[in-house]
Design a binder for these strands. Structure first.
Length: 405
RNA sequence: GGGGAUAUGGCACAGCGGCAACUGCGGCGGACUGUAAAUCCGCUCCCUCUGGGUUCCUUGGUUCGAGUCCAAGUAUCCCCA
């Protein structure tokens, strides 16, 4: 299976990667001609994966396609700490049950990208939880506080006078220990993981093993085009997002990000991606067409070809023709009439989840952002005739709908 | 263990004792568009609202009135041990 020469493999492996430390070491490992063990550790802190999580997963898939093996480490042990990487505050702890549930959905979603036949899934709680204090202390003695404090996220928190809890310091130590346990050849991670990955190298060397190669992928920017994709920023594209939603979110990324998304998220070949890159470079690219094609590609990857076509059609209907989508969420509500027999709309909008509060709904109406059956409401028209609302479709802004039944 | 500093709405940063609280970012809505970017306008604690209610770490106190003053507590950071 492993027939490709080292240089050919490197072309695939280096596409889109941020750092490979050290590159020479990777070449040496590849030159042995044996399948390597590629490690990715994941903390099941959130049950939903997004395209940002998919970036390293896709790189792993490329490794698999080159004939290498992947070990996915479910961090049910390390999750007790919560990875401080890139964080500006301590993570809230999770319960074991939450972690189990999250881990399961994580693997389910990851397998949309990975090749299950070449993937091994292990739980680091298996060796972390039974660890005794002696082993623990011996591990911790291999790292110094100054070294750990070098990390940007820690030193930043330190200088910003934000708290760092003691247990957060041992996260990199435990992650490094995982590499020892599974004898990783390459550990992957987001670029914010570089410190943890290098800690793995140190510890492996300490244990007399050949140190792993650290390979990092860039952090994918979210739909706002600025901040890294993250659920808490609300700029994420979830792997389980509905096809139409996923397509729409991809369409809303800034043009500058299209080439990058192709590189990090699409299934196109390296050559095709290089060509797209080049077209952006020399200004011959058609960003709109390329973005649509990107949307199709990504939706197809996670939902299949049929859904991708439907998603694109639904997008056109909604945003080019301004049609009301046919899968609007339905609500059966009782109309509460006032003395004049009218219905107070703001309250109703809260009930059908179009608005967070009545006051918010009132402001939306005043701003001209509320429509009933496609008709915009005049400012201050908070009380409406119930006949108008009968089986009506309410719309808040451009994309939020609710159907009354 | 001793000394000092800080604590304001999603974030950042203001706030002579009369404030639902300056400003920036973010977010939402509208116009323009390719649901992009840029630009312009409006909104951004809750409430059927020309008004009412509840806020500025917590609890007490001073005061006609406190985010603003006092006391205690809590949390974080800094210096010393």
């Amino acid at each position: 299976m492993l027939v490709l020469p080292v240089e050919e493999q490197l072309k695939v492996i280096t596409s889109g990667t941020m750092q490979i430390v050290p590159l020479e070491g990777l070449k040496e490992k590849l030159a042995k001609g044996k399948p390597l063990t590629i490690k990715l550790g994941v903390d099941p802190t959130s049950p939903d994966l997004h395209l940002g999580h998919a970036v390293p997963l896709r790189k792993m898939r490329q490794f698999q396609d080159l004939g290498h093996n992947v070990t996915l480490i479910i961090g049910n042990g390390t999750a007790l700490i919560g990875d401080p990487s890139g964080r500006d505050s301590t993570r809230p702890p999770l319960t074991s049950e939450q972690i189990e549930v999250n881990a399961q959905t994580y693997v389910e979603q990851a397998m949309k990208i990975l090749d299950p036949d070449r993937t091994t899934v292990v739980h680091n709680g298996d060796w972390i939880k039974p660890m005794n204090l002696e082993t623990m202390l011996s591990l911790m003695s291999k790292f110094t506080v100054a070294r750990i404090l070098e990390r940007e996220d820690f030193s930043k928190r330190y200088h910003n006078q934000q708290p760092i809890a003691l247990h957060e310091f041992i996260y990199p130590v435990l992650q490094a220990y995982d590499s020892v346990m599974i004898k990783a050849d390459v550990e992957m991670g987001g670029n914010d993981q570089i410190f943890n990955l290098l800690a793995g190298r140190d510890l492996m060397r300490d244990e007399g093993m050949e140190p792993q190669i650290a390979l990092t992928m860039p952090l994918l920017e979210g739909t706002d085009g600025v901040k890294k994709m993250s659920k808490s920023y609300g700029n994420y594209i979830g792997l389980t997002d509905e096809p139409a939603d996923m397509f729409g979110k991809i369409m809303s990324i800034p043009d500058e990000l299209v080439a990058r998304y192709y590189r990090l998220c699409s299934t196109l070949s390296i050559d095709e991606i290089d060509a797209i890159d080049a077209s952006f470079e020399d200004g011959t690219a058609d960003p709109y067409a390329l973005k649509r094609a990107l949307g199709r590609n990504i939706v197809e990857l996670y939902h299949g070809a049929d859904k991708a076509v439907q998603a694109e059609e639904a997008f056109d209907a909604l945003f080019k023709k301004h049609e009301i989508p046919d899968d609007v969420a339905e609500f059966s509500v009782e109309f509460v009439r006032n003395d004049q027999g009218l219905v107070y709309l703001p309250k109703l909008m809260v009930e059908v989840k179009l608005s967070a509060s009545a006051g918010d709904a009132r402001r939306l109406i005043d701003g001209g952002g509320v429509k009933i059956n496609g008709e915009a409401l005049a400012p201050k028209s908070y009380n409406v005739d119930p006949d108008l609302l009968d089986h009506a479709i309410l719309q808040a802004g451009k994309r939020r709908f609710a159907k009354l039944v």
